[in-house]
């Protein structure tokens, strides 16, 4: 085997594009996470509805959403909807939506777990002083559930962050796309992808430490009694 000379210069030379790609990765994952939170909360709420039919619908959507490979979902949204129903999303929108649906399916379960972990006595007491359902969720149950939900939410975000790299297949110029593109010209995929890998490690670590700080903040202010 030939000796392989690393050429990290390639990173330096293409740094602006790579950074641009990184920014797009971040944007699409954040947009995806925003959708995921909305979808997740919505479907978790349906799971708690008194109407059985809503429980079943929400449960099915969550199951399907969790089972579908992101890749397939992305193709359906980007090409399928466009071909069949003339609903056209930009590549960025399609990517964010696909991430949102997958993440939302997971978030629904996380929300449900967090909410069921709160003692029913808490909502009993809230109802007993005359709070309505909305107030009880917003003021009593959710603030307590957040401490359970937060660590898992961070996990899901890290998943979405990595999942966001798949949008390169529909031509979003994210960091992986840029790395791929540059390596076609320079024949230096190893350096480029390794760089991307290190960046993702750094990203994940910073997200995790941010979550850790947030968790500490929350538990300092309000412990379970």
């Amino acid at each position: 085997m030939d000796k392989y000379d690393f050429s990290w210069r390639i990173i330096q030379e293409n740094l602006p594009e790579l950074i641009n790609g990184l920014i797009i990765t971040l944007q699409i994952s954040v947009a995806g996470m925003a959708f995921a939170l909305l979808f997740g909360l919505f479907f978790a709420t349906l799971r708690f509805s008194q109407y059985r039919i809503l429980n079943i619908v929400s449960n099915s959507i969550v199951q399907v959403g969790r089972s579908l490979p992101l890749f397939v979902l992305l193709f359906w949204i980007y090409y399928g909807l466009s071909l069949k129903f003339k609903i056209n999303f930009t590549d960025f929108q399609a990517g964010a939506l696909a991430l949102g649906i997958t993440g939302g399916a997971y978030m629904a379960e996380v929300f449900r777990g967090g909410i069921t972990a709160i003692d029913k006595g808490q909502s009993d007491a809230a109802f007993a002083i005359g709070l309505n359902r909305m107030q009880t969720s917003r003021l009593i149950v959710l603030p307590q559930a957040i401490r359970i939900i937060l660590p898992q939410t961070v996990n899901i975000y890290v998943g979405l962050l990595k999942g966001a790299t798949i949008v390169s297949v529909i031509g979003v110029a994210d960091m992986i796309y840029v790395a791929q593109y540059v390596s076609l010209e320079t024949f230096r995929p190893f350096e480029l992808y390794s760089f991307a890998g290190v960046v993702f490690i750094a990203l994940t670590l910073s997200v995790a430490s941010f979550a850790w700080l947030l968790e500490r903040q929350l538990s300092g202010k309000s412990r379970r009694g």
């Binding site: 006595g121 009993d124 007491a125 007993a128 009593i140 307590q144 309000s222 412990r223 379970r224």
Partner: peptide, 14 residues
């Protein structure tokens, strides 16, 4: 109607 419970059910985050 005021109600007091066996397990107190005070709100721990307040």
């Amino acid at each position: 109607i005021g109600m007091v419970f066996q397990h107190f059910n005070v709100f721990p985050h307040m």
